[in-house]
Each structure stands twice: as C-alpha cells, then as structure tokens.
C-alpha cells in the first residue's frame, strides 16, 4: 500500500458535474482507483470510514478470543487460537496501511478508537465466557466476516482490494478451525454439547446483525454500491450467510435459536432459501451506542495497552534519534 507521502498536493478535487461523471465512468469501467488518483472527497471519506472501522474491528476482535489463549484446553487448540488472534492483528495492520494511503495516519486512527469516537463491529462487545465461544466466533463471526469480505476483494479502491485479498487468503483457516472446534464439542459429552448449543444461542443473532441494518434503513449503502466499494447489500449478504450456515448447524446436531426459521422454496429466485425471524434492532443499536456488556472493557483494554506502551515507543524513537546523531557525528 502506498504511503501518505505519495498523496500529492493535488488531492483537492474540483467536484464539477463533469469531474464526478468522469470518475463514475472509471468506476463503471471497473478501473481501480489508486491513492494518488483524483477522487471525490466523499469517496475518500467513505473509504476512510469503512476501512478504519474494519481495521478497528480486527484489532478489538483480538480481545474476546485472546481471552481464551491461556486457557485453551489442548496444545493443538492453543497454537491454532494464538495464530488466529495474531492473524486478526495482522489484518488490522494491513487495513490501517490501506487507510493510511487516503491521508489519515495510524496515530489519528488509533486516537479515534481509544477516545471512543470510532466505530467497530459491535459483535466484539459481546463476552466470551466459555470455551465454546471460541468455536462460535470462528464459525459464525468469521463466517459472516468472510461473506462481507470476499466481495471487498473486488472493491474499486486498489489498496483496500489488495489488503482484502490478503485478508481473505489468511482468513480461510479461521472459519474451519471454529467449525471443527464446535464439531468436537457437539460430538463430545452432554456438558460439551450443551456448551456448544449455548454458545450458538448467544452468537447467532449478533452474527446476523454483523451485516448491518436492513437495506431500507442503511444510510450508506446506495452510494457505496454505485462506487463499487460494496458489491452486495446488507440484506443480500445476510441471506447468503443464513443459507450457508443453517445446514452446517444441522450437520453437527445443533439448532439455531429461531422458531421462525423455515425453508422457503420460492426464495433466491426460486433456488430456495431460509426465512428467518425478526432481528432485535433495538439490541443492535444499544450495543452500537456503547451500552453492550463489553464496550467499555474493550476500549479500556486497548487504552491501557497503548498508554502502558508509550514509554516503549518513545524509547525506540529516542534510540533511533541517538543512532542517527552518532552516524552523523562519525
């Protein structure tokens, strides 16, 4: 990804109708937009918002799963979980890099997260009280994330698309490890099976909420679709996720906590799909607004890590400065 330094002084665009039409024509021709290309201010803003939220989600997402690294029940599970949480950190890093090509710095983005100004995926404000939550997150949360992310590999903004290709490649093991974990619980003792079902009950609805508000209520969808930042609507992706996931649950003897879940032949242009119950959007918005069980804990944990690490970052910079001076003096 390109640096901030590559963005010239000419990024201020004259947003005449001709300019906007020419930009839209490039998008319609499936041309990729690169960091130093002229772009409408709103396109830039939308991307910064999307990419940074995505990056923050990866970073905060390290915490609920990280909660179980030291307690993973076998060494095999422990290394898989540690590698997975590490990957989330890597994905956050790739995405911050992509956002930085648009003229914001990592420091700015970090401050926005730490001051609670930035949004991140609300799913990570739910707690992970049991080991089965690690399975549920891998299977459902990463599963939902993949639905969202695969189309982003074709996003019109080059650095975001490239970061997403890398993310998707790495993420492919995440969902499998989660589902495998759930499978071994579902095949285990009564206690283990109950633990798996309980986790599914708690994570199913929040997973569906991950796709965002219904298309009719989403303020950002239309323009993002026109700019080919997004390729599918929230509801389309949610439906795909439900259709893919319900059979996976059935296969291992678990059931979705939704009495209204039924197969509907006529859905998806006659290919069939699942009808499902009403999502509790009030819960969604409450958690988005900061009232979830873990919102404050998550931000406090990130703030503590950042504050505790300040002296380390300063020391590294001070040492680099000393070395430069020594080199200059030599």
């Amino acid at each position: 990804m390109y640096s901030q330094g590559l963005i010239g002084a000419n990024t201020e665009t004259q947003e005449t109708p001709e300019f906007l039409a020419a930009f839209q024509a490039r998008i319609d021709a499936e041309e990729k937009i690169e960091p130093n290309d002229p772009m409408p201010a709103a396109y830039r803003k939308t991307l910064i918002r999307m990419i940074s939220q995505h990056a923050h989600s990866e970073i905060v997402g390290m915490l609920p799963e990280g909660n179980w690294i030291t307690r993973a029940p076998t060494l095999r599970r422990k290394v898989a979980l540690l590698a997975k949480v590490q990957d989330e950190g890597g994905h956050g890093l790739y995405l911050y890099s992509a956002a930085e090509t648009l003229g914001v710095s990592r420091e700015q983005l970090t401050q926005e997260l730490l001051t609670g100004k930035a949004k991140y995926s609300s799913i990570f404000n739910y707690p992970t009280p049991t080991w089965a939550d690690i399975g549920a997150i891998g299977w459902l949360v990463d599963g939902a994330a993949i639905m969202n992310q695969v189309p982003l590999c074709r996003c019109s903004y080059g650095p975001y698309a490239r970061a997403m290709i890398r993310v998707c490649k790495e993420e492919s093991f995440h969902q499998r490890q989660g589902y495998e974990l759930m499978t071994s619980l579902a095949e285990g003792t009564e206690e283990q099976k109950a633990m798996a079902q309980d986790a599914l009950n708690r994570w199913w609805w929040p997973s569906l909420m991950m796709f965002g508000p219904s298309d009719s209520d989403s303020q950002h969808s239309d323009q993002s679709m026109a700019w080919k930042i997004k390729r599918f609507t929230n509801d389309e992706l949610r439906q795909k996720f439900v259709d893919a996931t319900v059979p996976q649950a059935e296969l291992i003897g678990l059931s979705m906590p939704d009495e209204k879940l039924t197969w509907n032949e006529s859905k998806n242009n006659g290919q069939g799909g699942y009808d499902f119950g009403e999502i509790d959007w009030d819960e969604f918005w409450q958690v988005v607004k900061g009232h979830g069980m873990m919102n404050k804990d998550r931000i406090n944990a990130k703030r503590k890590a950042w504050d505790d690490g300040a002296w380390v970052r300063q020391a590294a910079l001070a040492h680099a400065e000393k070395q430069n001076q020594r080199k200059a003096a030599a």
């Binding site: 970073i59 390290m62 590490q86 950190g89 956050g92 890093l93 944990a301 505790d308």
Partner: peptide, 10 residues
C-alpha cells in the same frame, strides 16, 4: 502469549 492484543504497538 498473555501479551497478545496488549502489546506496546501493533
């Protein structure tokens, strides 16, 4: 591994 998610920088 206790550090994971809490390091001084990403």
């Amino acid at each position: 591994s206790e550090w994971c998610g809490h390091a001084p920088m990403l």
